[in-house]
């Protein structure tokens, strides 16, 4: 079976994973845009959101192992997404309060933020490991999963369709939020020049909090989607976190549309690469592409800065 026979199947798989990377990558890019710092604890926001959504869905499921259908499925997915988003948002809010704001008040050097983030990340991982156990946790089927339709011969499952559709809906609404609302205007103003934004009457502190929370909402809901396919575990954040960070850099960190493009591209490259070479080289290929693109375009595909590009 050659690569070309499987091309569309791999494309479908790659877009599904890539859309998740994109959703997480937005959290990195938004925070970088306003604060010029990489929030390395973002992967744990994703993990906590994932558990929040998973436990909510499990609690609402009938205990007999039957798969719900129809409106019940829609409701369960919506509630799971909502719970994941709320947990992610809360986690991001707490993170900003505990790990970042005290440093900002003291005008700490940049390195201190990094160490603070790593500390918060380690704490969250181990707390989750202690509370939720160190085994992978399965998210039971919330709807009848199977091939929804075929695209050029490639099977598109209901699940990947749901994941892709929800992820794209989130990406589009975020893009609208940043580009078209007053809040988005504030975010862009702070990103362009925080000092001038203050003079123009923008409440910078508030914008920073909102940025963290929006990133957390997306990551939390993304975590719930991720658990549908890949299960949840206390250590689940690290790899998708690194991938999403890569996606953000690939597209141009600080650039909202760049993060989306970077995520989808990374998903596709991984999917093709994993098939062409051994699956274990998937990560190697993804990072090779990153290095190659950064050599040609050092500021990413679409360039840096939230303010200018969005």
């Amino acid at each position: 079976m050659g690569f070309l026979d499987q091309f569309w199947q791999l494309t479908v798989d790659g877009l599904m994973v890539g859309s998740l990377y994109a959703v997480i990558a937005l959290g990195y890019t938004l925070v970088y845009g306003v604060l010029q710092l990489i929030n390395f604890a973002h992967s744990e926001v994703f993990m906590l959101g994932s558990f929040g959504g998973l436990f909510t869905a499990r609690a609402l499921l009938p205990g007999d192992g039957s798969v719900p259908g129809g409106l019940a499925s829609v409701g369960l997915v919506a509630l799971g997404l909502g719970a994941g988003a709320v947990c992610g948002g809360l986690a991001a809010f707490t993170l900003e309060r505990v790990a970042y704001r005290p440093l900002r008040r003291r005008s700490a050097p940049r390195l201190a933020y990094l160490i603070s983030a790593i500390g918060a990340s380690l704490f969250a991982v181990n707390l989750a490991g202690k509370e939720f156990g160190r085994q992978n946790v399965d998210l039971p089927d919330l709807f009848h999963n199977g091939t929804a339709f075929r695209l050029f011969g490639a099977a598109v499952s209901t699940q990947s369709l749901v994941i892709f559709a929800v992820a794209v809906a989130m990406l589009v609404s975020l893009d609208r939020l940043v580009a078209g609302t007053r809040l988005g205007q504030g975010i862009r103003a702070v990103a362009q020049d925080a000092d001038t934004a203050v003079l123009m009457g923008v409440n910078v502190e508030q914008i920073i909090i909102v940025t963290f929370v929006v990133g957390g909402l997306l990551a939390g809901a993304g975590g719930f989607l991720y658990a549908m396919t890949f299960n949840a575990s206390y250590s689940m954040g690290f790899v998708p976190g690194v991938k999403a960070f890569t996606a953000a850099v690939l597209g141009g960190i600080g650039n909202v549309r760049g993060a989306m493009l970077g995520g989808l591209l990374l998903g596709l490259v991984e999917s093709y690469g994993g098939y062409l070479f051994q699956a274990s080289y998937k990560d190697v290929i993804a990072f090779l592409v990153l290095v190659a693109i950064l050599m040609i375009r050092p500021s990413g595909l679409l360039g840096e800065r939230l303010g200018r590009a969005a």
Partner: peptide, 20 residues
């Protein structure tokens, strides 16, 4: 025969298996 280091994402491996 194929080998894959432990990972979370087995989608492309699954595609490969089904193709075989």
């Amino acid at each position: 025969h194929d080998g894959i280091n432990p990972t979370k994402d087995y989608t492309s491996e699954a595609t490969k298996i089904i193709a075989a």
